Simulated assay, not measured.
Amino acid sequence: MTQSWRTPLWLIEAFYGTPWPMEARLANYRLIGRWGYEGAIYAPKSDRSLRSEWQRDFTREENSQLEEMAATARESGLEFGVGLSPLEIWEDWSRENRARLRSKLISLHDRGCRVLSLLFDDMRGDRPQLASFQGEIVAFVRDHWPGHRVIVCPTYYSDDPILASIFGEPPPRYLEELSHRIAPDVGIFWTGPKVVSDAIGLDHIREVTSRMGRQPFLWDNYPVNDGARTSRYLFLKGVQGRGPLMSGQLVGYAANPMVQPHLSQIPLHALGRLARDPVNSCADAAFEDSVRACVSGRAAGAILAHVDDFCERGLDLLSDREQELIAGAFREIGGPHASEVVAWLANEYEFDPDCLTG
């Protein structure tokens, strides 16, 4: 049972590019269940059945995979959620589209999903009635969702100017109006002052809480590395400056992991430790403990020896010779964590801009 003073910790697999392999995803569900996480949300940007093709029925294979994820989450003590992005649905809020949306909700629930994340991100938002349209959709989903929880991601989920530059200027007081139109029991995602926030202070969270009329559900884009710049790094160190947020300042905290499922275990484990003891947990000590808890033998020592190469220098500052030497050492060690390091050094996780429109 989650204690009232502690912020519930979630995993949200919501990065661009290739999703985690199913075997690795299920293994990570089992692990985070032991680390004190409350739930896991499946929301890869590349899953068209939840985004660009949301109107169609799931295939037999998609149904089977959702059922397997839900069953594994449940067995691991986790709530299971799915992120649904009904792209541009307010452009055609017809009876037919409403029926398709309701059918999708029922299908997700039948597969074992109990938490619905309704995602309005990655959509144009420069229209005056945006909050009104989205509020009506959220009310419809809340009324027809058979599960017990709905969480919404606004189109403008941060005040970061980059969102306006990509999706158009938001309507005035968009967040305040949307929050006013959404029932109090619906969660609202927020990423902090930036889309990828280095620091998230208590004053910022208090301000957003006032604007929303409720505590935000923090969607922390850490340790995700799916972008053109971030894919050049492996963010293995423990997150900084989040401890004060773990003691009742948020309705929930969702971590968006790295593209590498096994290496993601290290920062996810460190977050679990931080959530359990936000006052006394030291990020550096938690990181080393997490490496040794998640990675066996020689691989753990090699990761600790090269952590600054992965987190600070990255591929662009490592010479070809350095990359060859590090890759050779990890190739000799072997195992899933070492293999992901070798693949990263070989640029196998290079950012592909086509993933943004796929």
Results as ranks from 00 to 15, higher is better:
Val341Leu: 07
Leu236Trp: 03
Val152Gly: 04
Asp126Asn: 09
Phe120Thr: 09
Glu136Arg: 11
Ile166Ala: 03
Ala24Ser: 12
Arg34Met: 10
Leu318His: 07
Ala14Gln: 15
Tyr174Ala: 11
His144Phe: 05
Cys282Tyr: 04
Glu322Met: 10
His337Ala: 15
His180Val: 14
Arg331Phe: 04
Pro278Gln: 02
Glu324Met: 13
Ala299Arg: 00
Asn28Arg: 08
Leu250Pro: 01
His180Asn: 14
Ala275Leu: 01
Ala27Asp: 13
Ser319Thr: 14
Phe351Lys: 08
Pro21Glu: 07
Asp316Met: 12
Ala299Gln: 00
Asp143Ser: 15
Ile137Val: 14
Asn63Ile: 11
Met212Gln: 14
Met22Leu: 14
Pro216Asp: 10
Arg173Asn: 15
Ser64Met: 09
Pro257Ala: 05
Leu236Asn: 00
Arg321Phe: 15
Ala300Glu: 05
Phe310Thr: 04
Gly248Pro: 00
Leu78Tyr: 01
Ser339Phe: 07
Ser46Ala: 15
Leu356Gln: 10
Cys355Thr: 15
Trp54Cys: 09
Leu31Tyr: 08
Glu79Trp: 09
Pro86Thr: 07
Leu268Gly: 06
Arg211Tyr: 03
Val141Asn: 02
Glu88Trp: 10
Ala329Phe: 06
Pro193Leu: 11
Glu207Tyr: 11
Arg100Thr: 03
Gly334Glu: 08
Ala24Asn: 07
Lys104Gly: 01
Trp10Val: 04
Ala27Leu: 08
Thr72Met: 00
Gly335Glu: 09
Arg181Asn: 09
Leu236Cys: 03
Arg206Phe: 09
Ala254Val: 10
Val259Tyr: 01
Cys153Pro: 02
Gly187Thr: 08
Ile137His: 02
Cys294Tyr: 01
Thr2Tyr: 08
Leu101Met: 04
Cys294Trp: 01
Asp308Trp: 11
Gly252Ser: 07
His262Arg: 12
Phe330His: 09
Leu163Ser: 03
Leu304Gln: 08
Val186Arg: 04
Phe58Lys: 10
Phe167Ile: 10
Pro170Val: 09
Glu324Ala: 14
Arg149Thr: 04
Gly112Ile: 06
Gly301Ala: 06
Val141Ser: 00
Ile162Ala: 14
Arg273Val: 07
Ala329Asn: 13
Asn280Gly: 13
Leu105Glu: 04
Ile326Met: 15
Val208Ser: 06
Arg6His: 06
Pro278His: 00
Glu88Ile: 01
Leu234Thr: 05
Ser165Lys: 15
Gly213Asn: 03
Arg206Asn: 15
Glu340Trp: 06
Trp344Tyr: 03
Glu348Gln: 14
Ile162Cys: 11
Gly39Cys: 08
Glu61Leu: 11
Val307Ser: 04
Arg292Ile: 05
Ala199Pro: 10
Glu13Val: 04
Ser281Ala: 14
Glu91Met: 10
Gly147Lys: 03
His144Trp: 02
Trp190Met: 14
Asp316Glu: 14
Asp308Ala: 13
Ser94His: 02
Glu348Asn: 04
Met22Lys: 07
Gln3Pro: 06
